[in-house]
Design a protein around this nucleic acid. Structure first.
Length: 270
DNA sequence: AAGAGACCCTGGATGC
DNA sequence: TGCATCCAGGGTCTCT
C-alpha cells in the first residue's frame, strides 16, 4: 500500500498522538507481524517505555524510545495505524495493539499480514541497506549513472529496488517514468545522462506533489483519521489502462515487469 | 553478482 | 447464485 508520501503523511498524523506517551502494555494478535525480537520479548520490552520522537526512512516509520531503542513499523501493502479509545471494538484485521496510558490504543491493522514491527537498538539493523531518499541531493543523475552502469534489468524494476533509492513504489515509479518519458523496459544501464537527469527531476516532482496531496488512495490507504489522499486525481498513467494518454491521447498500456503491474504510454515513452 | 520467479496473505472485482 | 480466476501502494528468499 503505502509509498514514501503515504508513509510520511501517516507518520505526520500519528506522531502527535503518540509522542510523549507511555506504553502500558502490548497485545500481539498476529505473531507474524512482529519481526524481531520474539513477540513475547517484544511486548515485554515495550512495556513502560515512552515514545520520544519519530522520523521516516524510505517506507519505514522509526519511533525513538526513552531507553534509546527504536520501534520500527513497515505497513507493506495493507497496514493502517489508528489511535482510538481502548474500549473501541477490535477489527478482525487488527494485528498489534499498543496500549497507551490514559486508556487509549495505538492499533496496527493489516488485512494481508505483510506488515512488520521491529524493536531494535540500532535502526541501521533494519534500514541500513536502503539507498538515498529521493528528495536528498545525494539522489542525482551522477549517482544513478554510477549505480546503473552495466545494469540490464528494466529501469522500472530498478526504481523499485529500495537499495538503489528508498521510498518509491509501484505508483510513483510508473508516474515518474511517464513524466520523464522513459519506457519502463529500458535497461537501467542504457539511460543517457540527460535521461537520468530527467528521471531524477521526475521522481522528485512526483514525490513532492504526492506529499502535498497527502498520498494516493486507491483501495486501502487511509490517513489515521480515516480520511483519504488526493493524488489519485493526479495520476497520469497508473491504473489507467486503455484510457487516453493525457499528453498524446494514445491508449495507456499495461504490462507486467518484474511481477509488478506497469502502466505507460507506448507512444511517448521511449 | 544480478536477475527472474516463487512466496507470504486476504479480500474485492470480474468472468463464466 | 456459485465458483474460478485475477488482481492488489511490498519485500524476502531461492535458484540460476
Amino acid at each position: 500500500m503505502p509509498e514514501l508520501p503515504e508513509v510520511q503523511t501517516i507518520l505526520d498524523a500519528i506522531t502527535p498522538l503518540v509522542q510523549g506517551r507511555t506504553i502500558e502494555g502490548v497485545t500481539v494478535l498476529w505473531p507474524g507481524t512482529v519481526d524481531r525480537p520474539a513477540p513475547e520479548l517484544f511486548a515485554d520490552s515495550l512495556r513502560g517505555r515512552t515514545i520520544v520522537g519519530s522520523h521516516r526512512r524510505g517506507k519505514y516509520m522509526l519511533f525513538a524510545l526513552d531507553d534509546a531503542r527504536w520501534l520500527l513499523l513497515h505497513l507493506r501493502m495493507t497496514g493502517e495505524l489508528r489511535v482510538v479509545p481502548g474500549d473501541v471494538a477490535l477489527h478482525p484485521h487488527d494485528r498489534l495493539l499498543i496500549h497507551l496510558e490514559g486508556n487509549e490504543d495505538w492499533r496496527f491493522k493489516d488485512t494481508r499480514k505483510f506488515g512488520r514491527a521491529y524493536l531494535v537498538e540500532q535502526p541501521e539493523e533494519v534500514v541500513g541497506g536502503l539507498g538515498p531518499e529521493p528528495l536528498d541531493e545525494v539522489f542525482s543523475a551522477e549517482y544513478l549513472m554510477a549505480r546503473l552502469q552495466g545494469r540490464t534489468a528494466p529501469i522500472k524494476s530498478l526504481l523499485l529496488d529500495q537499495r538503489l533509492v528508498a521510498g518509491i513504489g509501484n505508483i510513483y515509479a510508473d508516474e515518474a517514468l511517464f513524466r520523464a518519458r522513459i519506457h519502463p523496459l529500458r535497461p537501467g544501464g542504457s539511460l543517457s545522462a540527460a535521461e537520468l537527469a530527467a528521471l531524477v527531476e521526475a521522481v522528485r516532482a512526483v514525490i513532492r506533489q504526492a506529499l502535498a496531496e497527502m498520498g494516493t488512495t486507491l483501495r486501502d490507504y487511509r490517513r489515521p483519521d480515516g480520511s483519504i489522499g488526493s493524488f489519485q486525481n493526479s495520476l497520469q498513467v497508473f491504473q489507467r489502462t486503455d484510457e487516453p494518454c493525457p499528453s498524446c491521447g494514445a491508449p495507456i498500456r499495461r504490462i507486467v515487469v518484474g511481477g509488478r503491474s506497469t502502466h505507460f504510454c507506448p507512444v511517448e515513452q521511449k
